[in-house]
Every structure is written in structure tokens, then in C-alpha cells.
């Protein structure tokens, strides 16, 4: 088990190298540099050249990338090229906001989607099931920014129930972005839950459970869901990772000061160090969430747990 975790974490290294290189390359290919963002009109050409030299913009991209990675290897994410603030500090002040938003979406999403999926599966082929399917398809195909704007228009502008953006009003300000973020997840997870439950509801062991005289509620909750939730877990994990990494749109629409908005701000200012730092940290989060989900598998399914244990035992015998 530990070996497995270590191996998975070691996989982060190639991921980080690839991700940071791609970010550097894209920023290089994009028109404009950080100098364009911070220069003022009264600067002379010499001063601009001096600025370019400061940021090593006169050197090839591979040089700047090498320098960045060298620092990164020593645990230094560098300072923002624009604000001169430490990237790690900036990221860490924004991360809690994104985590709060992502987990709120996750909780709302799971609380709605799993019962919805079970409900649909138990009425498969009937009107209620079709309604859920239509809802899921709509949810999946609706662009998040558009939904966000609709929510803002209705509940903030027209009804004035919730603030129009930011995070200054505590729980009230989180409602709209969390609902908006959960919708895509609800759609996905409800569909996944439905199909898994359908598969499990026809399983022989449910008949065994009923034949034992187990109450129907327990049959569904313990026996059916106990088996169906393993793939559902993956969907939720992917959903959470997508929330963390894909918070850009929602955070922009709702002016939520999280890492997504930080990335957008950094990109508009061509702040390569900040963008790369944010992207690397987000990828690490993404990989860790996936790892946690995979480990949760072992607790959900004894057959998968057995694989880990068998692997460890086999190793011991060989050594």
C-alpha cells in the first residue's frame, strides 16, 4: 500500500515537468510579455530593454525554463513578476477560497445527485427516470458561465437574495457559485449513479438479500449502494478535481478570489512565474485528489484492497 502511494507520488515529477514546460511554451507563443503589462508610456527604449534583460527576455525560452526549474527543484516557486510577491504565499492565500467553494459544490452535488440517480434507477424507463435523464443532459450541456449569469440575474439582480459576487458576505455569498459549480457534477454523477444502480439492482446478491428477509430500505442502501458507489466515487473524484482545476470560469463569473481567478489575472498580465506556479500547484492538487480517490477504492471494495495486500506480500516473499 505504501509502496503504491510512493509510486503514485513519484509520478508527479514527470507531470510537473510536462505541465510547466507546456505553460512556458504557451506563454512564449502568446503575443506580449510581462514588460508590456508593467511598462508605462513615458519609458524610454533603453529602460524597456533594461526591463527585458531583468526578466531574461533577451535569452531563449529554454534558458528561462531551466532557471525556473532549478529554483523549483529547491522548493522555490519564485516571485510574481508583476507584484513581486512570493508565488507560494499568493497561492496559499487564495487556495482556501477555492477549497471552500469546491467542497461546497461537492457536498451539494453529491447530496443531490446520488439520491437522484437511485431514484431514477428504481424507476428505470418510467417518466421520472426520463425526467432525470433530460435534466442530466441539460445540466451537462449548459455552459457554466451562462448558467452563472442566469443565476446572478435571477437571484442577485432581480430578487436580491444573494450578493452579486465576491466572498465578503460569508455563507450567503457562497450559495450561488456553489450551486452553479455543482450542477455539472450533479448531471454527471446522477447519470453514473443511475447506470451503476441499474446494473446492481439486477444482481443476484440483491435477491439473496431479499430472500433473507432484509428490509427493502437496507437492501438498497447497504447491498446495492455498497456495490454501486465504487464507480460513483470515481465520478465524484473527477468532479472534485475538475472543480479545483476548473474553477477559472465560476470564479471569474462570481468574482470569487480563488486560484482560478488568480490564474486569469496572471495570464492577462503575462506573469509567467505566477501562471506556472498556479498551474503546477493545481496539477499537484489534481493528482493528489485522484490518488485519494484511488485509495478510497480500497476501503470501498475488499477485492481491490486484496490486490494491494497481495502485491506487498508477493514482494516480501521475493526479497
Amino acid at each position: 500500500m505504501i509502496r503504491y502511494v510512493v509510486r503514485r507520488i513519484l509520478w508527479l515529477i514527470p507531470v510537473i515537468i510536462a505541465v510547466s514546460f507546456i505553460v512556458f511554451l504557451l506563454m512564449e507563443l502568446a503575443p506580449g510579455t510581462v514588460v508590456d503589462a508593467i511598462q508605462s508610456d513615458d519609458m524610454t527604449t533603453e529602460q524597456r530593454e533594461e526591463l527585458r534583460r531583468q526578466y531574461n527576455l533577451d535569452k531563449p525560452m529554454i534558458y528561462r525554463y531551466g532557471l525556473y526549474m532549478l529554483n523549483f527543484a529547491q522548493g522555490d516557486l519564485g516571485v510574481s513578476q508583476v507584484s513581486k510577491l512570493d508565488v507560494w504565499d499568493v497561492f496559499m492565500t487564495r487556495l482556501p477560497n477555492t477549497l471552500i467553494l469546491s467542497f461546497s459544490s461537492l457536498i451539494i452535488g453529491s447530496a443531490v445527485s446520488i439520491p437522484l440517480g437511485i431514484f431514477a434507477a428504481r424507476r428505470a424507463g418510467k417518466l421520472a427516470d426520463n425526467a432525470v435523464t433530460i435534466f442530466s443532459l441539460t445540466g451537462m450541456s449548459m455552459p457554466i458561465f451562462w448558467l452563472g449569469l442566469l443565476l446572478l440575474l435571477m437571484f442577485s439582480y432581480k430578487l436580491g437574495l444573494f450578493p452579486g459576487g465576491g466572498n465578503r458576505e460569508g455563507i450567503r455569498s457562497i450559495v450561488l457559485p456553489a450551486i452553479c459549480g455543482s450542477l455539472g457534477m450533479i448531471a454527471n454523477t446522477a447519470r453514473q449513479t443511475r447506470s451503476n444502480m441499474l446494473e446492481v439492482l439486477n444482481a443476484d446478491f440483491l435477491r439473496t438479500a431479499r430472500a433473507k428477509g432484509v428490509p427493502e430500505k437496507v437492501v438498497i442502501r447497504k447491498h446495492a449502494l455498497g456495490n454501486a458507489w465504487i464507480p460513483i466515487l470515481t465520478t465524484i473524484g473527477i468532479g472534485l478535481a475538475a472543480q479545483l482545476a476548473g474553477s477559472v470560469v465560476i470564479e471569474s463569473v462570481f468574482a470569487w478570489p480563488g486560484i482560478g481567478r488568480l490564474a486569469v489575472e496572471a495570464v492577462t498580465q503575462r506573469d509567467v512565474t505566477l501562471v506556472t506556479g498556479v498551474v503546477i500547484m493545481t496539477s499537484i492538487l489534481y493528482v493528489l485528489v485522484q490518488l485519494i480517490v484511488d485509495l478510497l477504492y480500497a476501503f470501498a471494495d475488499p477485492r481491490i484492497k486484496a490486490q494491494y495486500i497481495k502485491y506487498a506480500k508477493r514482494r516480501k516473499r521475493v526479497v
Partner: peptide
């Protein structure tokens, strides 16, 4: 009344 089912491979809940 109780019943012994036909296929033991699928009659048991794999996660219990």
C-alpha cells in the same frame, strides 16, 4: 422459508 440460490458466484455480496 428460505432459498438456496443457483449460482454461488453471484449470489453473495462481494463487498460484505
Amino acid at each position: 422459508v428460505s432459498m438456496i440460490f443457483q449460482d454461488p458466484m453471484t449470489a453473495l455480496n462481494p463487498v460484505m
